[in-house]
Amino acid sequence: MTLATGINRLATLQDEPPAAIPGGPADPVLIVDHLTMRFGGLTAVNDLSFKVGRGDITALIGPNGAGKTTVFNCITGFYKPSEGMIRLVQKGGETYLLERLPGHDVNRLARVARTFQNIRLFPRMTVLENLLVAMHKPLMRASGFSILGILGLPAYRSAEKAGIEKAAAWLDRIGLTARADDAAGDLPYGDQRRLEIARAMCTDPVLLCLDEPAAGLNPRESSELNTLLRLIRDEYDTSVLLIEHDMSVVMQISDRIVVLDYGIKIADGTPDDIRTDTRVIAAYLGVDDEEVAAVEAEVGLTGTQA
């Protein structure tokens, strides 16, 4: 335990207020600096720098295989980046170096939560249990790391009740109250997506990373998702970073958009900036390869791809 705390302290930098990159958000919650991730000979992310503003919804977009999920995996501690620094700044100014934290501490200490591109619920556990698992840290403390809980002391019982209450509130919000006691794996796809978001929110995150939350949703579910994400941004102290292919979602709700292509950032700005950016149009919005090459040559971007 003490060793782990020591390491965590090492990873916590109190000083050094983040230098503002011109054009970036003024009060960033996440600062990605010169991030590079290589898999053998393949450079999936190449020297990527961007910021996520506090209280914003930031979208990370790019064609298939651009390296978006890899960026998420680096932020959330699943991959150790080959190079670069990822800083998370909490409201008080406390800073965590995410690439140095052990996997689970990215959520436990730095309070970064995420969802997965291919949904990862606990399929045989009930919907309610899925949410309670996410409240592991506070409930664990309330149960005296199980010792007091085993003895059945009332302190834990009231904490569990508060946890159920919180879970129930989230179930109301995502419209799954009626299915609270069903196995999560039995839910329809769209419900599973929303449940995964609610589960991530139950960890009280500062930053919520969503990997293609609208994938496979129908238009109605997709607009419900927009409402949910806006609610998260407006009513909680949670900033959102999302990967999305669905442009109707991205353009409607994001405050800022970062565009990746072959692991390289090709644009970063407001939705209006992005809509008119020639490189984005070339790389992303459905142009064939030859045309892309032509446009890339035009804007002076040649031979950069891995």
Binding site: R124, L139, M140, E160
Partner: peptide, 23 residues
């Protein structure tokens, strides 16, 4: 019924998801 026991079952179901939830 305790968080630790629930974490065991969650671990059986999906270890990666557990890690992403701070366990």
């Amino acid at each position: 019924r305790l968080p630790l026991g629930r974490a065991w079952e969650a671990l059986r179901e999906d270890e990666i998801a557990c890690r992403s939830l701070g366990i």
